[in-house]
């Protein structure tokens, strides 16, 4: 589904990604973790072309992201993305947030789009808030709306960029619950997150990144049981002690 081959990226002289390669098969859930500044967010943003990269290739469903001939907006409309800071459109109601791209990008009719949007809103448990504005919802609620907004486009896969790191602790689980459910339904997912509980529960593989490189690309049990690199061992020791 997603194939990343020898991707490198630099800002001027600063190397952000170095020779990253991995493969995400249909229905797989991949968790990307690593210390801050290791390039995890940059890597995931390369997958839908929000960040350009200088060398290597990324293909999503057989379509090359880096190819200048690729219709990027069209490809992006098929890849859902959830951001750290939710990025709901604050000047639109929740319903409009859920329908605008369906109508303007996919060309769906307003009624069909609203129907679809409200169904997904119900699924994330927020149907009662359809007419509110993003500013009236809590962070956890906003992030659940953001997930519903991405799902409304019928994506072939979902990218999550630290979806819970801007949330108050008591709101993290409501978002993770939605993500777990999504994973169990077979959605192909690539998640940058530090939530190791989530990773243990649903991930097929863990990518561990450090200094722009993919240091480990292991099955979940191998990663948590016996990480090969010293760097990953240190990282796990630090975040799993408490």
């Amino acid at each position: 589904m997603i194939s990343i081959q020898n991707v490198s990226k630099h800002y001027g002289a600063f190397q952000v990604l170095t020779d990253c390669s991995t493969e995400v098969k249909k229905g797989e859930v991949i968790v990307v973790c690593g210390p801050s500044g290791s390039g995890k967010s940059t890597l995931i943003k390369c997958v839908n072309g929000l960040e350009p990269f200088q060398s290597g290739t990324i293909t999503v469903d057989g379509i090359s992201v880096g190819d200048p001939k690729t219709d990027l907006p069209r490809l992006r409309s098929r890849v859902g993305m959830v951001f750290q800071h939710f990025e709901l459109f604050p000047h639109m109601s929740i319903t409009d947030n859920l329908t605008i791209a369906q109508i303007k990008v996919l060309g769906r009719g307003r009624d069909a789009a609203t129907d679809k949007g409200l169904k997904l809103l119900d699924r994330v448990g927020l149907k009662a808030h359809a007419d509110k504005f993003p500013g009236q919802l809590s962070g956890g609620q906003q992030q659940r709306v953001a997930i519903a907004r991405a799902l409304a486009m019928d994506p072939i896969c979902m990218l999550f960029d630290e979806p819970t790191s801007a949330l108050d602790p008591e709101m993290i689980n409501e978002v993770l619950d939605v993500m777990v459910e999504l994973a169990q339904e077979g959605m192909t997912m690539m998640c940058v997150t530090h939530e190791m509980g989530f990773a243990k529960k649903v991930a097929n593989r863990i990518l561990f990144m450090d200094k722009g490189q993919i240091v480990e690309d292991d099955a979940k049990d191998a990663f948590f049981g016996n990480p090969r690199s010293e760097r990953a061992r240190q990282f796990l020791a630090k975040i799993l002690t408490h």
């Binding site: 943003k45 839908n48 929000l50 907006p73 069209r74 992006r76 409309s77 098929r78 890849v79 859902g80 993305m81 951001f83 990025e87 709901l88 459109f89 605008i100 791209a101 303007k104 990008v105 996919l106 907004r149 991405a150 486009m153």
Partner: peptide, 10 residues
Amino acid sequence: QISAASALGM
């Protein structure tokens, strides 16, 4: 906001 709009295919 631009990233989010782009990610939705706009």
